[in-house]
Design a protein around this nucleic acid. Sequence first.
DNA 1: GATGAATGAGACTTCATTCAT
DNA 2: GATGAATGAAGTCTCATTCAT
Lengths: 195, 195, 195, 195
Amino acid sequence: MPVKKVDRRTVIKESLTVFRQKGYHNATMSDIAVACGLLKGSIYHYFSSKEELMKAVIQYLHEWYKREVFALAYDTGKSGAQKLEELAAISEQIFYQEPGGCLMANIGMETANTYPEFAELIKGFFEEWIAALAFIFEEFFDSQKARSIAELSVGEIEGAVMLMQVYQDKGYLKRAHQHIKQRFIAAEAAATEKA
Amino acid sequence: MPVKKVDRRTVIKESLTVFRQKGYHNATMSDIAVACGLLKGSIYHYFSSKEELMKAVIQYLHEWYKREVFALAYDTGKSGAQKLEELAAISEQIFYQEPGGCLMANIGMETANTYPEFAELIKGFFEEWIAALAFIFEEFFDSQKARSIAELSVGEIEGAVMLMQVYQDKGYLKRAHQHIKQRFIAAEAAATEKA
Amino acid sequence: MPVKKVDRRTVIKESLTVFRQKGYHNATMSDIAVACGLLKGSIYHYFSSKEELMKAVIQYLHEWYKREVFALAYDTGKSGAQKLEELAAISEQIFYQEPGGCLMANIGMETANTYPEFAELIKGFFEEWIAALAFIFEEFFDSQKARSIAELSVGEIEGAVMLMQVYQDKGYLKRAHQHIKQRFIAAEAAATEKA
Amino acid sequence: MPVKKVDRRTVIKESLTVFRQKGYHNATMSDIAVACGLLKGSIYHYFSSKEELMKAVIQYLHEWYKREVFALAYDTGKSGAQKLEELAAISEQIFYQEPGGCLMANIGMETANTYPEFAELIKGFFEEWIAALAFIFEEFFDSQKARSIAELSVGEIEGAVMLMQVYQDKGYLKRAHQHIKQRFIAAEAAATEKA
DNA sequence: GATGAATGAGACTTCATTCAT
DNA sequence: GATGAATGAAGTCTCATTCAT
């Protein structure tokens, strides 16, 4: 028998999948326990409540994105276009491989009006995402404009992910990414020309 | 006992508010009954289940948008810019006045993976929205490009509405609308110049 | 449109069918209303409660059997064997044509321990049935023995009807009837021989 | 709070009593929970639904009869008359001690037309009962005739139990048993005489 | 006489959570 | 650390019954 390594981290990772696919209220502690290979009651050794677990999942995912995704935006060795390319690639990889769309947006929309604590954490995630994109755009735009474009871009991606889920068609995300890149390239071209 | 007449339409409209704010799973039949001034069981006089009620709400909202919003796009007496202006105005009015964001996106993201019947209806809604915007963009773009821009625009609006909820900041939606209008005006200018 | 004649008697007759097939607790006033072509509330014009309706149905069926079935046993123009033959024929006709077995036994067994008022009425029915058969057997048996055989015979028929329902096989009832007739014929033969 | 351990078997046994006395539809999960000393929801720890519980009860009772009652029929150390005697004794003991009549017949008649899954299980019970009696009768009758007498006998017993309930008079069952024994003894005498 | 909207009690069931083992 | 039995509140839904129209 393979020794089941069930630790806090495992519970979080399995819960992440369950919450992303089923949403917060529709996911039961039982669903999560099954996903972890545990019994219902055992989850409470790691997390004092479903709410705490959800928060831990959001935080874990935020950290993960920070480290694995957003960090790319600050990589000094790459051009802005390259960075956007890589961000798009990793983003598509994530959303294509893991069914259920974007946990942050899903949970955010489901609970925005009723669980302010979740919204706060989710806001932190989007804040860093926007900041990362804004950093790239600042190469050719002033700080305010860069921020504005970053917000729009995040909106475009999330909107596309939503349509992707509703339509069961991956094209939306790809096209949103292309659009974002083109906008950057156009700005780059305009800046080069001017110089 | 005073016999209040609460008709089917009223139940749908009150449910719409409850579902938009609380989501599908977090909204209880009791919540809805209270909103309607009825008892829990009385809702079942008109709808055989919570699921049926949700579907009726989606359909009602779809019809409403068709009639009150999407129709504007086909109004022959107005310019494309004017139409976009009006669509933006009415859209903002809706999303600012009624708390909870966009029911279609909220419910869509909450249930996309678990309630295919909802997703199908919601898809129908987005389909008509996209078609309406595409119709406007066809003035200056070929059919395929117009469709693509329309999809992107809907994504931008929905992404903005999501950020609006998470950030509790109405600016996102306004800026998304402005962006969409500017894209149209730029295309218009380019077309005029060429001529 | 055929004018629907919905009177008390119709309600009783339709209810009879519903109760026989679904039992007392599993039959809803709605089921009955549908069977009558009425709406739920309208039944209450004729009967003050489900319980009253059930009692009326039992009484109606009792009267019907008395008039159409049990009376045969007292027909002076026929031999005992003939009477048993005819009773068997009509009994089979009823149980074969109308699905759901014997309402009296069904309701009796379902409610014997919880609705003494039903049991009392149902007892009245069986009392007359037993008396009718006993009357026939008294031709060749003393009163006590005749009663005893009659009780056994009714038990045989009802037991057979139960097995008929569980097995979905009509043979049980037929064989029970044959057995009852043979018993009579054997007694007849013994009596003739003795003389 | 004292944690009482109420195991699956106990739930089944308590439910059996409740179902026999109140019937399937009239017995509530609350009734059963009270009988078990549990709360309503706790029953679902062992059984996923009322229907599943009912089925488990039927199966449990079937097994019990098989082991404790029907097995007697195949006991090689006893004469047929002895076996019938013992079967009658144990049968009377059961039906006299435990109020509510025969669960198999009660539930069978209540649900035959609406719950085919129950009917199937109940049929299995009667099948083994009939087979057991037929085995005894095969001592003096050919296989087909023995089966036929066994069916009749089971019908007689069940019919008697029904009358016993309706009349609240235990005599019916006793007389049915006597009748069955006498039939066997008469056959035995006939066979002996012939030899 | 009939309707149908509403009631309110109560049915079955789910589920986050607790806790002795 | 893990289990699984139990809890209790709450959820969806049903249904006999009432009553204004």
